[in-house]
Computed example of a mutant assay.
Amino acid sequence: AASRLLAEMEALLSLPLHERQGRGLQLTPVGKALARRAARIEIELADAARDLAEAATGRAGVVRVGSVTGPALSLVMPTLIRLQEALPDFRAEVTVATSINLCDLLREGRLDFALARLGPGETQLEARVIAGEPLSLVVRRGHPLLVLPRISGEDLLRHDWVVGDDETLLTQTVIARLSELGMPLPKRRISTSSFLFTLALLNQTDAIAPLATAVVDSFAGNPSVPFVSLPVDLGLSVAPFSLVTRTGAQMTPSAQRLIDGLRYAS
């Protein structure tokens, strides 16, 4: 049946959509272009169905939002809490991941939008810058550095730092900034991009972790939280994050309501 449909499409278009390669088939450049367009149409049809369901029932649908860690805690979470207080039936699915993974999910139609960073040369997605993301150096309460009257660069580098591998934006930012300051790279006995694993390491060791200042501010002042930021500023800041959507996509009313709330909060 699939072969027959493919042959019918080729006859209709008068263009080859596939070609044989060994024992299998592969799409021609024309076939790949049509497949990309078909995938986008399928996503738009699914969004249209959600739109119609909201209009028919008068109830908010489920919004699928993705975010990198910092804005997930500083923007998405408080905005969702406010919306649910005003609209009890408002529902959301939140995915926290790296920008690369979030953009992949967006292209596949598995997210409505994301707070992430868009790579160069992207054509399927579009972005509107929201805000920059400064970093703070975080340690456990009772860390030996906290008793020093002044913390020097040498003091910082005596301890392990918890960062991701060299491909992550945060790690690249830290390396570039330390190089600008003429400081050697810190020790990294354990590399991880997991926020929870980073907090666990901080809690059980004297390691230092550069984290988004917005994340640190979300638990600052709470004595029950076992982490604090060091009173030192190295000028660490990653590139601004953006509101990323599929190019030309029309948001459902619920998704647009959340976007409006995030813009107001930022």
Rank of each mutant, 00 (worst) to 15 (best):
F241D: 00
L87P: 01
V215F: 03
I81D: 08
A92Q: 04
G61T: 10
T252S: 02
S224T: 14
A55S: 15
P226V: 12
R110N: 12
M77C: 05
T57H: 00
I208K: 03
P240E: 14
T205M: 13
A116C: 07
P210R: 05
S254L: 10
R141Q: 14
I43P: 01
A53I: 07
R110F: 09
T192K: 02
D155C: 08
L185H: 12
E85Q: 12
Q250E: 13
L73E: 12
L234N: 05
V174E: 01
L234V: 08
A207G: 06
P88R: 12
A35G: 07
E108Q: 09
R189S: 10
I259P: 02
A48F: 14
L13C: 04
F90D: 02
D233N: 08
A72Q: 04
V30E: 13
I190K: 03
V65H: 01
L17S: 02
G109L: 05
L83Y: 01
R246P: 03
A56W: 08
R91M: 07
T205V: 14
G24R: 14
P78W: 13
V76F: 07
S229D: 13
S193I: 08
L12Q: 15
A127K: 01
E122Y: 02
G182K: 11
S14D: 15
R4Q: 14
L137P: 02
V225W: 05
A212R: 01
V244D: 06
S67E: 05
E54Q: 10
A60W: 06
R107H: 02
H159V: 07
S194W: 08
E44M: 07
V96P: 01
E8R: 12
F219L: 11
D47C: 06
L13W: 04
A35V: 10
D217Y: 09
A39H: 09
